[in-house]
Simulated scan of single mutants.
Amino acid sequence: MSVKEYAAPGAAPPKPVADAPPPDGRLTIRPARRARRIPRLPRAVRRAIGPVGLLVAWYLGSVTGVLPENVLASPVDVVHQAIELTSTGELPRAIAASGRRAASGFVIGAAIALALSLTAGLFRLGEDVVDASMGMFRAIPWVGLIPLFIVWFGIDETPKIALVALGVTYPLYFNIYGGIRSADSQLVEAARMLGLGRIGLIRYVILPSALPGALVGLRYALSTAWLALVFGEQINADAGIGYLMSNAEQYFRTDVIVLCLAVYAILGLLCDFVVRLLSKRLLSWRASFDGDGA
């Protein structure tokens, strides 16, 4: 019940009773406790914990015999093999050959994806013609087209580059097309009220709105390019990282196989790092969520 029910009529409401002073009459003021701040590791160190932990577990498994050499070579053997192949020049030549194939296929696939996504995203007729076809072809596993590419292009460099181009086209197309179609309708309406024509609307509103999706598609496309190259270089290759891997498979050289896989992974991480830097520069105007702010 409230205080008013027990108070006499016309009496003032009771005042809160202050804490009684200490017996000696002195008032002690205690500072508020500050929360203990847990020291935070630099972000680069936190990101390296996972890979370093995997390397340590791999090394311990090799030393203790949990991972026999015929199953998986130790990281020490992989490093020794990397030094040996680098000193002979075999590994740099393989990386250069694979890099040329990946770059050629990426340029071709990116050009096709950009043309198709702009056609489907900016024109209603283009959307009706292109998007349905791309959705249909996307359901076909592009790795399963290798035999058909061999029949069409032979066994030289062309089917390898074509496979990379095909793998790059799909993620770039769907991300750019989705970015164009998801442009903010309020921004579009505001641009029209300001008198922008179709060209200005596309240049200043539609394409900047599609840029985040395009960069996401670029990250997927670059990783897919290296993935496609792994399969493409199994087609009668005479140079490249896949060629080294195929030869190592015949002699059960797990150290060389793991080395080639590590090179593919490092190249993919370098491409992803470049795209991240590009995203920070091109999307500096865009507010983003950064986790816990650390």
Rank of each mutant, 00 (worst) to 15 (best):
L269Q: 11
G195R: 09
V164Q: 00
V63Q: 11
P23R: 13
I49W: 09
I112F: 11
P23F: 14
S87D: 15
G291A: 10
G50P: 08
I140C: 08
V45R: 07
S209G: 10
A12K: 12
T158F: 11
I38F: 13
L269H: 12
S246T: 14
A18N: 14
R181Q: 12
L172C: 04
D131T: 11
L122R: 04
A96M: 15
S185P: 09
C260D: 01
L201D: 05
F149A: 00
I202L: 12
A102P: 09
A32I: 10
I180W: 02
G293Y: 06
L244F: 03
L259M: 05
I49N: 06
V3W: 15
I155Q: 07
L222Y: 07
T224Q: 05
G242I: 00
L267G: 08
P9N: 06
D290Y: 11
Y264C: 04
A190F: 08
L259E: 03
L278E: 05
P141R: 03
T158V: 14
I176A: 08
I112G: 04
G121N: 01
V66S: 12
C260F: 02
G109A: 05
A210E: 04
W285C: 03
A113P: 06
V216P: 02
L67N: 07
G195S: 10
Y59S: 13
L270D: 07
A139W: 06
D272F: 06
I29F: 15
L187Q: 08
L196I: 11
Y6I: 14
V164N: 00
L229N: 00
L145F: 03
G213K: 05
R138E: 14
M1K: 13
V230M: 01
M134H: 04
F106T: 13
L166H: 02
R36T: 14
V258R: 01
G61D: 10
P31I: 06
P212Y: 04
R26H: 14
V168W: 00
A73S: 05
L27R: 15
R219P: 02
T254S: 02
P31Y: 06
A239L: 07
L85Q: 07
S246G: 11
I257C: 02
V78S: 02
G293L: 08
Y264T: 03
L267T: 08
Q234G: 08
P14M: 07
L244T: 03
K280G: 09
G53M: 04
I161L: 00
G121R: 00
A73H: 01
H80Y: 13
S288F: 12
G154R: 04
V188L: 13
L54M: 11
